[in-house]
């Protein structure tokens, strides 16, 4: 196995893991809808209500967008200002994405990771629970999602980097071949 196929293998693995993760957390959107509806029905139909139930929707919501973000990056659905981007060649696009990943995406995630680490650890040390009476007791889990988010985005960043560098390399080969023909 050469290094190129090793890195491509890594890229595929990252893609697959995040795809499965995204599919898994996507179920939470359905749960959010149903629980919210249930809260309304129970409160106005049956005079019942629990703060913990209200908070559970928030937990699901946080999980959805923090863990679904990596696959969203993979399928290129994080919005771009694409006035110029959409007209660029594959190679130019790959350059933008390579530089953007190295200079913007990865530093931001590393930075989130570094700054939030203590914050999350402290929450674990006291097994922090809800500030609301009757709320859920898993604030430390909720905070941990921030770290997981940063890690998964950086992994996906790595996969994007591999993908885009391959595109650049590939198009260079094509360029050279074209020149050879002339």
């Amino acid at each position: 196995m050469n290094s190129s196929s090793l890195t491509t293998g890594l890229q595929h693995k990252i893609d697959l893991v995040h795809q499965s993760l995204c599919k898994l957390v996507s179920w939470f959107t359905l749960f959010m809808v149903l629980i919210t509806f249930l809260i309304v029905v129970l409160r106005y139909g049956f005079n019942l209500g629990w703060i913990a139930m209200q908070e559970s929707v928030m937990y699901l919501h946080a999980t959805v967008f923090l863990l679904g973000a990596a696959h969203t990056l993979k399928v290129n659905e994080h919005v771009r200002v694409d006035i110029f981007y959409r007209q660029m060649s594959q190679k130019k696009k790959a350059w933008v994405d390579t530089l953007g990943t190295l200079l913007l995406l990865m530093p931001v995630n590393c930075f989130i990771l570094a700054l939030s680490f203590d914050y999350v650890i402290k929450s674990w040390q006291i097994l922090e629970s809800s500030p609301q009476a009757g709320g859920l007791a898993f604030v430390f889990v909720l905070k941990t999602l921030i770290l997981l988010f940063a890690v998964s985005m950086n992994l996906q960043g790595l996969a994007e980097l591999i993908r885009n560098i391959l595109i650049i390399k590939h198009s260079q080969k094509i360029d050279e071949a074209d020149k050879g023909e002339v």
Binding site: R43, N47, L48, G49, I51, Q54, E55, Q132, A133, G134, G135
Partner: peptide
């Protein structure tokens, strides 16, 4: 009604809403 007051209120059959 947040806090301990909310817990008390719930004991009497009220529904505390956040």
């Amino acid at each position: 009604i947040p806090g301990l007051g909310g817990e008390v209120f719930k004991k009497l059959g009220g529904i505390p809403v956040a």
